Amino acid sequence: MSITRRALQSSTSSWQAVARPAVCCRSFSATTHRRSETTTEPLQETQAATPSEERPRWSYTPVQMKAPFSIQQPKDPRRSIWRVNTDPAKLDRMYEKLLGKELARALPDELKWLAVTHKSFDNGRRGFNTRLAFFGRQILALETTKTIMAGPAVELEADPFGRTPFSHPALDNVDKLSVVQPHMYASPERLSALAREVGLPAVVRWKPRMPDNLAGSGVTTVLTSTVFAIIGAVSLQHGAEVANRVVRERIVKYLAQ
Rank of each mutant, 00 (worst) to 15 (best):
V246M: 12
A49H: 04
L171M: 14
E189V: 02
R35D: 03
V203S: 04
W206S: 01
T226I: 09
L43K: 00
S13A: 13
D76F: 09
H238G: 00
T130S: 14
K207Y: 01
E155C: 05
E197G: 03
T38F: 00
I230V: 15
Q257N: 04
R248K: 15
Q64I: 10
P108W: 01
I230Q: 04
G216Q: 06
T226A: 09
S11I: 13
G239F: 08
S120V: 06
S217A: 09
H168R: 08
V154K: 14
H118P: 03
R79N: 14
D122Y: 01
P56H: 06
E157G: 15
T50N: 01
A153F: 02
S13Y: 08
E241G: 06
E54N: 08
S27Q: 12
V174F: 13
D92K: 13
E249P: 06
W82I: 12
S217E: 03
C25L: 06
D87R: 12
L223F: 00
R57Y: 01
P68F: 03
R245P: 00
F135P: 00
D212N: 03
L194H: 04
C25M: 10
M184K: 11
S29Q: 05
K101L: 02
P88S: 07
T147L: 07
K97A: 12
R6S: 14
I81D: 05
F128C: 14
A256M: 02
K176M: 02
A89M: 06
R205G: 00
T147G: 02
Q181P: 05
V246Y: 00
C25P: 00
A48L: 02
S178D: 12
A243H: 12
A153T: 07
P88M: 02
V222G: 12
T4Q: 12
P51T: 08
V252I: 15
D92S: 15
F121R: 05
P77R: 13
S217F: 04
S192T: 09
S225G: 09
Y95Q: 00
I230F: 04
V63I: 11
G136E: 14
R245H: 08
P208G: 06
L223D: 01
